[in-house]
Computed example of a mutant assay.
Amino acid sequence: MESQYKDTESKAAETIDNVDNEMGGIISASQPASGAEQPWQEWVDVAVDFLSQVPEQLGNFFGEYKQPLTTVGLILTAAITVYITLSVLDAIGNIPLLASILELVGLGYTAWFTTRYLLKASTREELFAEFNGLKKQILGGK
């Protein structure tokens, strides 16, 4: 009987120790022992370690595969550009009279270019000189 009294007395002492005086007598939750972590804490630690290594791994990946990724990016950009251009041209073609006017403008420019540069040998030489000058500007002169 005396041992039961001591067990009850020690439990009462633990309960009194767990009372939080700042919260007006609310019993505080007991903290786990330092060696006994909660089971989900291990998973959180693994996730945090993985997420902290992601920027370094991405940097290594992009550093190693820079050229193929650039090529794929350029191909995707070209495909998107062609798609948008065709969509715009289709939309313009659906506007009444605008497609006909643009065709006339294109035919007029073609006629002017032909008469200006292609009919005479001297003007063809002038065109080739302009073309070669432009090519030297873009590719660099030798």
Score class of each variant (00 low, 15 high):
Asn60Lys: 09
Arg116Met: 02
Pro32Gly: 14
Pro39Tyr: 02
Gly25Ile: 08
Ala121Thr: 12
Phe113Ile: 05
Asn60Pro: 00
Glu64Leu: 02
Phe131Gln: 06
Tyr117Thr: 15
Val19His: 03
Ile75Gly: 07
Ala129His: 05
Met23His: 08
Lys120Gln: 13
Thr115Asp: 13
Leu118Met: 07
Phe113Cys: 03
Asn94Lys: 14
Val82Thr: 15
Val54Gly: 06
Gly108Trp: 00
Tyr117Ala: 10
Asn60Cys: 03
Ile75Thr: 13
Thr114Pro: 00
Leu86Glu: 08
Leu127Met: 02
Gln38Pro: 01
Glu130Cys: 04
Phe62Thr: 13
Leu139Lys: 10
Gly25Cys: 05
Leu74Phe: 02
Glu56Ile: 06
Pro55Arg: 07
Leu118Tyr: 08
Asn94Trp: 00
Val82Cys: 08
Ser30Lys: 15
Gly133Asn: 14
Leu97Lys: 10
Gln67Gly: 03
Tyr83Phe: 09
Leu76Trp: 02
Ser100His: 04
Gly108His: 00
Ala129Asn: 10
Ile84His: 09
Thr85Val: 04
Ala78Met: 02
Arg116Leu: 02
Thr81Lys: 12
Gln57Met: 05
Ala99His: 08
Gln38Asn: 11
Val46Glu: 15
Ala47Trp: 01
Gln67Met: 00
Lys136Phe: 02
Asp45Ala: 15
Ser87Arg: 14
Leu107Lys: 15
Ala47Val: 09
Ala47Pro: 00
Phe113Leu: 02
Thr123Ala: 06
Gly63Tyr: 01
Ala36Glu: 14
Ser30Ala: 14
Ser34Arg: 04
Thr77Trp: 03
Ile80Trp: 04
Arg124His: 07
Leu98Asp: 10
Thr115Phe: 00
Arg124Gln: 11
Gln31His: 14
Asn132Phe: 07
Glu125Phe: 01
Val48Cys: 08
Phe61Asn: 10
Ser28Gln: 07
Tyr117Asp: 13
Ile101Ala: 11
Asp90Met: 00
Ile92Val: 14
Leu134Val: 10
Lys66Gln: 13
Val19Arg: 06
Phe128Leu: 12
Val72Asn: 09
Ala111Gln: 03
Gly35Gln: 09
Phe50Tyr: 05
Leu134Ser: 10
Glu125Leu: 03
Pro39Lys: 12
Ile75Tyr: 04
Ala111Leu: 01
Tyr117Val: 11
Gly93Lys: 10
Val88Thr: 10
Thr71Leu: 05
Val44Asp: 11
Ile92Ser: 04
Phe62His: 09
Lys66Ile: 09
Gln57Ser: 10
Lys136Met: 08
Asp90Ala: 04
Ser122Gln: 06
Asn60Leu: 04
Ala99Gly: 15
Glu64Cys: 03
Val72His: 03
Ala29Cys: 07
Lys136Leu: 02
Leu98Ile: 14
Gln137Met: 07
Leu69Tyr: 00
Val82His: 04
Asp17His: 05
Thr85Tyr: 01
Glu126Ile: 13
Leu118Thr: 11
Lys136Asp: 12
Pro32Thr: 15
Gly133Thr: 15
Gly24Glu: 05
Asp20Leu: 00
Lys120Val: 07
Thr110Glu: 11
Phe61Arg: 03
Ala121Arg: 06
Ala29Trp: 02
Trp112Phe: 07
